[in-house]
Computed example of a mutant assay.
Amino acid sequence: MDTLNAIGSIMLQLMVPFIVGHLCRPLIANWINRHKRLVNTTDRSSILLVVYVAFSEAVVEGIWQTIDAYSLFIITLVSCVVLVVVMVINVMSARILGFSKEDEITILFCGSKKSLANGVPMANVLFPAATVGIILLPLMIFHQIQLMVCAVIAQKYAKRLEKQ
């Protein structure tokens, strides 16, 4: 029964807002288009808040007393390897399936995103509060690496498009 409660809680936190947002799109699309700057700022701020809360909870739980520098290095290294593998799989799959360059770029970025924004609510539901920080540490590190790497890749794509 706990499993069903966990699934229900995850659905309530992640899927319901997603579905409601899509159902409301026809009603609010014009407003969103007129206020893109506000919507983008709100979106980015909410993700920043999720990251801040997850990091703060980890600090309060004393994560830095339980993780040594070597473990932090290994987590960072594994996160880099996982990101590279996922991105290569995304790009190769897009090419094998014959997607256009624009679709390939979309697949590359969207296929490796949303880890922390989805992971924090799920971890809060699935794990005891005292362990959430240590469980989320690899996800927090992965997410930061992901953002930095994708920013560099996006700049390279933008420069390539400017030359064309």
Rank of each mutant, 00 (worst) to 15 (best):
V85H: 05
V85F: 08
V85R: 09
V86E: 01
V86G: 01
V86M: 06
V88R: 05
V88W: 10
V88H: 06
I89K: 07
I89M: 09
V91H: 03
V91T: 03
V91N: 00
M92D: 14
M92W: 12
M92R: 12
S93V: 08
S93T: 11
S93G: 10
S93H: 06
A94N: 01
A94F: 03
R95C: 03
I96Q: 13
I96C: 10
I96D: 04
I96F: 10
L97S: 11
L97Q: 08
G98K: 00
G98D: 00
F99H: 10
F99M: 04
F99N: 05
S100T: 04
S100E: 01
S100Y: 02
S100V: 03
K101D: 00
K101H: 12
D103A: 14
D103R: 15
E104C: 05
E104W: 07
E104F: 14
I105N: 13
I105W: 09
I105H: 12
I105E: 10
I105A: 04
T106F: 04
T106C: 04
T106A: 12
I107Q: 04
I107P: 06
L108K: 05
L108T: 01
F109P: 05
C110T: 12
C110Y: 15
C110P: 09
C110K: 12
C110F: 15
G111C: 05
G111T: 00
G111V: 00
G111K: 01
S112D: 07
S112C: 15
S112V: 12
K113Y: 14
K114A: 10
S115N: 04
S115R: 04
S115Y: 06
L116T: 02
L116Q: 04
L116H: 03
A117K: 13
A117F: 11
A117T: 12
A117N: 11
N118H: 15
N118Y: 15
N118P: 10
N118E: 11
G119A: 02
V120I: 11
V120D: 02
V120F: 06
V120M: 09
P121D: 03
P121A: 13
M122F: 13
A123Q: 09
N124H: 14
F127A: 04
F127H: 10
F127E: 03
P128C: 07
P128V: 07
P128G: 06
P128N: 08
A129V: 11
A129K: 10
A130K: 07
T131M: 10
T131S: 15
V132T: 11
V132L: 04
V132H: 10
